[in-house]
């Protein structure tokens, strides 16, 4: 079965490369809609990475929430704030050179540290199977408090977003 794993490794490296390329595109493309689609590519690629790490449930949730909902949100925002087919205006400001240098420096230092540290890889962690039911069970037992808090947070965000983005602000608010 080594050929299969070799092909799988090849596939994962290819996916990584595609995700990085899409990420660069998402950051540097001039037309905002194209870079939103590149972000969608990145999100699907990251979901593929989760699949490679046997976290199927997480991959599906990622696609459902990110690609299904957040991308729709971003595209709605783009549509509302940009004239249809507006000219592609320069997207990055003056300090693009410094930004690049900062990011590159960050990568070099952190990468070096990561590469040298001997990570305590435990064999049985790699092989342990972790299905959606264990996830659900732990969500309901050990992490039930954050689960409830996140519900309240999302509820607050729901109302907050609507109030902020309302077109006809109520009488009192418009000074």
């Amino acid at each position: 079965m080594t050929e299969l794993t070799f092909i799988a490794q090849l596939g994962i490296y290819a996916m990584m490369f595609v995700v990085l390329a899409a990420a660069v595109a998402a950051v540097t493309l001039r037309n905002l809609f194209h870079c939103a689609l590149a972000l969608a590519g990145v999100l699907i690629g990251v979901a593929g990475m989760y699949l490679a790490m046997h976290a199927e449930f997480l991959a599906m949730v990622q696609i459902l929430i990110y690609v299904g909902a957040v991308m729709t949100l971003i595209i709605f925002a783009i549509m509302l704030t940009q004239r249809l087919g507006a000219g592609d205006v320069a997207q990055n400001n003056k300090q693009s050179l410094f930004g690049a240098v900062a990011a590159a420096g960050f990568v070099v230092t952190l990468g070096g540290i990561l590469w040298k540290t001997p990570w305590p890889v435990k064999e049985e962690a790699v092989t342990s199977s972790f299905s959606a039911s264990d996830l659900g069970e732990s969500l309901m037992t050990t992490y039930v408090l954050p689960f409830e808090i996140i519900a309240i947070v999302l509820f607050a965000v729901l109302i907050g977003a609507i109030v902020v983005a309302r077109k006809d602000a109520p009488k009192g608010a418009e000074q």
Binding site: L37, M60, I63, G68
Partner: peptide
């Protein structure tokens, strides 16, 4: 089922 929902929600894009 989650796979089905996730994939069918990408058609909005």
């Amino acid at each position: 089922i989650l796979y089905f929902l996730a994939v069918s929600s990408t058609t909005t894009i």
